[in-house]
Design a protein around this nucleic acid. Sequence first.
DNA 1: CTAGAAACTGAAAACCGTTTTCAGTTTTAG
DNA 2: CTAAAACTGAAAACGGTTTTCAGTTTCTAG
Lengths: 141, 141
Amino acid sequence: MLQYRKMSTMPRLAKNYRLVFDVVRKQGHGRHLATADVFRLVKRRRVGIGFTTVYRALAKLRDLGLISEIHLPGADSAYYEPAGDAHAHFRCDLCGSVKDIAYVPSKRVVAQLAQSNAIEVNDVILSLHGRCVSCRERESA
Amino acid sequence: MLQYRKMSTMPRLAKNYRLVFDVVRKQGHGRHLATADVFRLVKRRRVGIGFTTVYRALAKLRDLGLISEIHLPGADSAYYEPAGDAHAHFRCDLCGSVKDIAYVPSKRVVAQLAQSNAIEVNDVILSLHGRCVSCRERESA
DNA sequence: CTAGAAACTGAAAACCGTTTTCAGTTTTAG
DNA sequence: CTAAAACTGAAAACGGTTTTCAGTTTCTAG
């Protein structure tokens, strides 16, 4: 996947694209924003912006490899995070919060599965589902 | 997850529910039907049936644990398969076909991830994405 | 600078899978 | 049989996302 490790090699982005990128990037790795969260945060900095523009910015940033778009079973919208190394995601069934999980199935295992199933695997997506710390605490109270 | 291994213990289903169940079950394990596929096949056996009824039947069968509802990144609708043992799925990016993959991350690894992230994991969902055999053949021609 | 091309914008409408509402009809339990 | 519960299909609603439209802004030659 295309990625820009240095700012200097990154294509110049239109102002709004830059703004959307900053909002997603500011969360830092490990934080995740649903599309609605991105809207909300972007609107704080540029009140009049239309949701069409935000959608288009997210799509472009995703195509440029600057951010990752995540689709999780049970979630009704996409989530976004700064592009980075592959990892799994955890989503809380109760509050919907999403958290990075530092794990990927080994390349060897995936290659083996690809071979035995005669498929070409370009992407492996792993998600965990259950209850997050705060929801567990709240429930036990 | 609730499951009925013997027909005798399975709740009696209304005719339409039975029909939807048969359509999904007939595919056998390893085959997958998008919602639209289920409609199409069900309509062949009962022309007048409404899509509302099919949706409701799929939801009920899913709640009864008789079928599994699958949501895959990149797919625009749900897929259904007869309930069975946990496994991963492969989805072809080109034709959208879905195939079972006999693999689940080890319980030990998942337990370890749950502990180190302070989460309670109730479900693990793994999907592979790429090109299936027939699409690869077609492309190389 | 200027003219034209290319990129970008926001409102509104379209889209599409799915869920809900409504007004019944059918099935089940007693 | 009768009342409650379950089921039905058409139509409308829903919600996230994409497309269309009619411009406006930005970039690139010249």
